[in-house]
Design a protein around this nucleic acid. Structure first.
Lengths: 233, 233
DNA sequence: CAGAAACGAGAGCACCGCTCTTGTTTCTGT
DNA sequence: ACAGAAACAAGAGCGGTGCTCTCGTTTCTG
């Protein structure tokens, strides 16, 4: 780890402070240039230090990106969770709408960050273990919504052919992560919802709707409303 | 344009041949390194020419990427269309399954190419007009399927609240592109289907299902089967 | 057959991630 | 208190990138 517990000495304090400053500058750059062109050198210039000094705090550009990844996952997930919590728990449909709109709002405000999280992986980059926790917060929130829907006894929209044993087995780790009983059909529904959400946002933000859809806000709203219908919310 | 009609002279011939060779080498590299690290220099090395010579044929790296973009859009769309055509036209559900499986198969075989098409845009890159035609072939195929479903008189799965006038207006360019009558609800369904398809593939290929889903093949199949149910196919 | 156009190759510019060395500052054990 | 160890900032440097410019050669065209 980079910082051990408390800043005992002045040096410790300076270290965590500079680490924060570097990350902050990186994030500031990310607002303008996109993940692929994030440059350690320009960040260092921005902070008035030699580029080699940055490597005292982040051993490589990838480590810096990992830190940004975690920060952005957490930031967006916090917004989604907050939007969820702001709605009465039994208003299931409204919660779904609120969560999806929250993620879209964040994505629109932080397009390069969205690309970092859900776009193509950065060049030679393989996400380390640190990111998986934060990365699962949003899909977990969707899962919890579905579990609530199951407890409330809502019926799924369209009739679905029952899943085979093998199909159920493939979803086992997810079902187990919910922490309470949930049918495999609902687990699958949350996956669908997640895929639809990310797909819709990616198509919009990566420019695939350019010629075609005129009103992006309205289009996204239609998408999630229709999904709510399908999910029986 | 790069080549005007016929290769009249030996030089013309050499030019289109070399252009093709460069593109081919670029594509070969793309199978291994990912769009962001495609390097003009390494492609030139691969062909045994000076990097500056490549710029006689593609004025910039972005132009080269554009050519790859078009090629990949066309290649994947051709597979999707072929899969569609291989099924009896009135087997709507089977056509949907075939098309989605075809795109997934291509994406799995060409992961970097998929990232190029549907991942985050390449750094400073803005897709020019040339790419929009090929890019719309897949969503167009989905739209045509939905139009066929409408003609066949299938009913949509879950009940949907009717779209508002503004919502219908936002979809107008797409409806018009179908070339025959289609309800706005079905247009919206194709958008949902497209978003779900791209979202599902992106989540899978960009590593978001790593811990969770055990069997990717099965999971994707479940996704599209369930979507077929929702779409009333 | 001369002039023009296209060509390939090389040097060079400014940038990148990253490493190594050097000299300085700060902490720590005795 | 002080010496040794550890952390630090800065600079030079390596090999890579996209791209430009120049220069000598080849090919086409009027």
């Amino acid at each position: 780890m980079t910082s051990q517990s408390a800043p005992r000495t002045a040096r410790d304090f300076a270290r965590i402070e500079l680490t924060r400053a570097i990350l902050e500058a990186a994030r500031r750059h990310l607002a303008e240039v996109g993940p692929g062109e994030l440059s350690v050198r320009s960040i260092a210039r921005d902070l008035g230090m030699a580029s080699s000094a940055v490597y005292r705090y982040f051993p490589s550009r990838d480590h810096l990106i990992t830190a940004l990844l975690v920060q952005c996952y957490d930031e967006s997930a916090a917004l989604v969770e907050a939007a969820d919590a702001a709605v009465r728990p039994d208003r299931l449909r409204q919660r779904w709408i609120a969560m999806t709109l929250a993620l879209r709002a964040w994505a629109l405000d932080n397009q390069h960050e969205y690309a970092l999280l859900y776009g193509s992986p950065v060049p030679g980059y393989a996400a380390p273990q640190d990111t998986v926790g934060p990365a699962t917060r949003v899909p977990q929130a969707l899962l919890q919504l579905m579990a609530d829907a199951e407890e409330a006894g809502t019926v799924l929209g369209a009739p679905t052919a029952p899943l085979s044993r093998k199909e159920r087995a493939a979803l086992a780790p997810i079902s187990a992560s919910v922490g309470r009983p949930i049918s495999d059909e609902r687990v699958l529904r949350s996956l669908t919802g997640w895929a639809l959400l990310i797909g819709g946002l990616s198509l919009e933000l990566f420019g695939h709707l350019n010629r075609g859809v005129l009103d992006y806000d309205l289009n996204f709203r239609c998408l999630v409303e229709q999904a709510a219908d399908d999910f029986g919310l």
